[in-house]
Design a protein around this nucleic acid. Sequence first.
DNA 1: ACAAACAACTTGTCTATACAAGATAATAGT
DNA 2: ACTATTATCTTGTATAGACAAGTTGTTTGT
Lengths: 242, 242
Amino acid sequence: MADSKYQQIKSHILQRIETGRWQEGDAVPSENQLAGEFGVSRMTARRALQELAEQGVLQRTQGAATCVAPLKSQSSMLQIRNIADEIRERERHHRAQVIELAEIQADNALAAHFALPVGSKLYSSLICHWQDDEPLQLEQRFVNPALAPDYLKQDFSALTPHEYLCTAAPLTEAEHRVEALLADPLAIQYLHLQAGMPCLRLHRTTWSRDGVVSHALLTHPGEKYQLGGHLTFVPSERINRR
Amino acid sequence: MADSKYQQIKSHILQRIETGRWQEGDAVPSENQLAGEFGVSRMTARRALQELAEQGVLQRTQGAATCVAPLKSQSSMLQIRNIADEIRERERHHRAQVIELAEIQADNALAAHFALPVGSKLYSSLICHWQDDEPLQLEQRFVNPALAPDYLKQDFSALTPHEYLCTAAPLTEAEHRVEALLADPLAIQYLHLQAGMPCLRLHRTTWSRDGVVSHALLTHPGEKYQLGGHLTFVPSERINRR
DNA sequence: ACAAACAACTTGTCTATACAAGATAATAGT
DNA sequence: ACTATTATCTTGTATAGACAAGTTGTTTGT
């Protein structure tokens, strides 16, 4: 019932990485070293390293070494477009206007989203993203204080909430919902719309390993918000390193 | 400059599959056979099969054989929700009302979408999808006749266009764009809306290996169209079997 | 001080062999 | 006719060895 040898070596390496004993960027033992330590042939040790590299846990370079891959490179599994990046890619100027930053109490709907009791403390932010001198997105966001305790201390004119949250609580999963609606008072005020104009709202909930990190309502004026260039949809899975 | 041996074998297998010589479900040569044919060791032939299996091109079962994986199982790579499935999953009754089915000539915009000359022949369909006795989606679709020549002969009250196209031209890539707009005349008529109501329109372009298969405008009345349950967004890539 | 050559590593490809484990079809015993 | 065994396929794991190819640090020659 015991695992095969290369599986054991894989587990061993993963454990060292997850406990932080081998940090990202560190070189892990070479094929020959592992072979020696575990009393297996080089090809068996190699297989362990190889498969972990394919999973994106390790990075190998011929001639050099095998290193622990940077954790953010798991964003290859979960790439969520960042409005600031998008604007910058179009060679336009991005500016974030922080309208509100507060601590609130979860109402029924929010509590349900975060799987927390009604009345729980939540952080809330309202930010308007400008492209050049045109308001492009109104970002209303609610954040789980347990998973991002320093949220309110951030300067979101420099770093978008999404960028900050990615560093604070690595994403493992996300859910999106799209809604068309008529401009509401907030949209009218900050996106410079008129009553009766259609808006597009993207609801985005993000998870990290320990639960719901954030729930965002991203409201776009007018039409045709492109969902991040060429995209394919794949069923989500928790990142599982086992 | 020559590819490594296992790469050559991989290419050979992929070619046989793509040309249809080895159909899905067929068994491909065993490791030993390949080793013999190519004059390599079994471990080298094995590596080719192994990597193709990891890519999802082949399916291996110990003791039995290695078979060409069903192409539709690539839906793990590219899962696009089907309105009919969605409705059935909610245990509601789905009905497709075929409004129009015609051959048209591509205007500028359509021609650009399909990378075809202006005036090229295209197939067009207009279908309204009902959930129970409520119109839920208006599907306006344009199809490349070269890739789905029998499109107009289908009975779309039985099989949705999307389902049919999946069998006619296996998808390799898709692009989505979301738009919020005010109900247009078609939406008002078929989705039973009133002027001034917001609509959500999903633009979906799908590719197969040989080019753009179809361009669809999926218009939803009202609000909150869920983009297929839990989803993660990943950068698309052409399925590249080389 | 600088550059070329070298040695000592690393990972990448490949071979030939061995045995284990699962699937399948033929065979033998009842 | 049916079951159990067996032989023979398959894939899966593992070994020990060889050479290629890329990286890095050291040494050597100028």
